[in-house]
């Protein structure tokens, strides 16, 4: 790979990850209740279960998208389903960034704000994304987890308030 391509990939990765961090911060600011519910869901359900749910949903959404692209009108339905999956992933990232940030900041042994946690998580994942192949794999795992978190939130949000 030539240096230009490496630079392009690095810049693209940084743009994606920092953009997502900013989006996560904005979501947390504008919809604090949603963010809190997602935080609770991510803490309540195991990492692998969330990953599995996210992975299955992403796979099925992609298959539907691939099948529907053959047909004109039906392609729109596939596109909508796939777009919803992507939006759900971004929503779930709000909790995932915060979770990563919290786990890292616990090492500092000092209480921190949600802002610091989200930023720390975002920066950590951005740096991880720069590791060739392994970093991208970890980032994709986190994305699947995010989708899983949002799916869990859809089904479990009512039970969060039941005593």
């Amino acid at each position: 790979m030539n240096p230009g391509a490496i630079l392009a990939v690095t810049l693209f990765s940084l743009m994606i990850s920092f953009g997502l961090t900013a989006a996560a911060l904005a979501t947390r600011g504008f919809w604090p209740n949603l963010a809190e519910e997602l935080d609770t869901i991510s803490l309540s359900n195991s990492l692998w279960r969330r990953f599995l749910v996210g992975f299955i949903n992403a796979l099925i959404s992609f298959i539907i998208f691939a099948i529907t692209t053959k047909h004109g009108a039906l392609g729109l339905i596939g596109l909508i389903i796939f777009s919803i999956a992507i939006i759900f992933t971004f929503v779930g990232l709000v909790a995932e960034f915060c979770l990563w940030g919290r786990k890292i900041l616990v090492l500092r042994d000092s209480p921190n704000s949600l802002f610091t946690q989200t930023i720390t998580g975002g920066i950590t994942l951005s740096i991880i994304l720069l590791i060739p192949f392994a970093g991208q794999t970890i980032f994709f795992v986190v994305l699947f987890q995010s989708l899983g978190t949002t799916i869990y939130w859809l089904f479990q949000r009512k039970s969060l308030y039941k005593t």
Binding site: T40, L43, V53, I60, I64, T68, I77, F155
Partner: peptide, 29 residues
């Protein structure tokens, strides 16, 4: 293709529903 899509959407919903049926701990509510 429509039948396959309907099947996949139903499968997606069923899997998600079955997976997410574990109860949230009282502490986390």
């Amino acid at each position: 293709d429509l039948a396959i899509i309907l099947f996949l959407v139903s499968l997606q919903f069923t899997i998600s529903y079955l997976f997410t049926q574990n109860k949230i701990k009282q502490d986390n509510k």
